[in-house]
Amino acid sequence: MPQHGIPANEIDTSRPHPARIYDYLLGGKDNYQVDQEAGDALIAAAPEVRPSVRANRDFLHRAVRYVVGSGVRQILDIGTGLPTSPNVHETADQVAPGTRVAYVDNDPIVKAHADALLGRSGRTGVVLADLRDPRSILDHPGVRAVIDFDQPVALLLVAVLHFVTDEEEPHRILAELRDALPAGSYLVLSHATDDFAERSEAQAVYNKASATMNLRSRSRIQEFFAGFELVEPGLVQVPLWHPEVQPQQSGDIGFYGGVARKAPVPGPSGQ
């Protein structure tokens, strides 16, 4: 399946890729010089980028523990990025061992590393596919082997939707994914923003990458939760979502995050 114009079995090292830039910002080693140069340019343009991605990663862990603690036993993680321990399945196992996780990303290097790390346990799977084609994800045999869409699913879209342009119809993508989920499912979503600082220079770094950065305001991000009911405290900066310790001032953290539940459709009587 082609990804951004390259065969899926090839790794494009000529352009930075968001997953590898993110890995570099987290202190990982699964990246190339082009990704490191892009990461350094991001830090120069937005010095808070490293604490922001770390805060976003911490949000992911807290949100996974929340949804699994709420009873969900299967997770669809789209835009998973390079494996960084603890991974989603490791975090979920802390609450409910055996939780099933399907990882999806569009970078072949992500799949290669994840395949090597995860092995073939039967309760995890790694799929090479693109968020912009949600049907290819929902119908993928590798996803279907792990996820039962007749049972509640936690859909993770963590730090990925800002790589989808308005022209690529993110609302359509969310609607198609949402409609595939049964009642009782959850959406975990985080998204970069320029609400707190002008970040055109940081956005420009991604102009040479395999996906552009599309920063959005809180009100626009909240629209992506249509059809879901946000749990408290709603859509907030990621350090403020169910913090395990009292967070310091979060004004320089350029990510919003939220968790929402898909409620049952009321019957004819409203019950």
Rank of each mutant, 00 (worst) to 15 (best):
A8P: 12
N9F: 13
P16Y: 01
A19G: 09
I21Q: 06
Y22G: 05
D23T: 08
Y24Q: 13
L25V: 06
G28Q: 07
G39W: 10
I43Q: 15
V64I: 15
V72Q: 03
G79C: 04
N87H: 03
T91A: 02
D93E: 04
P97R: 06
A102I: 05
Y103M: 04
D105N: 09
L117V: 14
L117Q: 14
G119S: 12
S121H: 09
V126L: 14
L128M: 14
R132E: 15
R132W: 06
P141S: 01
A145Y: 02
V146H: 02
D148P: 07
F149R: 02
L156G: 01
V160F: 07
F163R: 06
F163E: 09
V164K: 06
V164W: 10
T165M: 01
E167M: 04
P170H: 07
P170Q: 09
H171T: 07
R172F: 08
I173L: 03
I173C: 03
E176L: 15
E176Q: 15
E176T: 14
R178E: 09
R178V: 10
D179M: 01
A180W: 11
A180L: 04
P182N: 04
G184A: 10
S190Q: 09
S190D: 08
A192W: 03
A192D: 05
A204N: 12
A204Q: 12
S210V: 12
S219T: 13
V231W: 00
E232M: 00
E232D: 14
L235D: 02
Q237M: 05
V238G: 00
V245N: 11
Q246L: 12
D252I: 02
I253V: 15
I253R: 08
G257P: 06
R261N: 04
K262I: 11
P264C: 02
P268E: 06
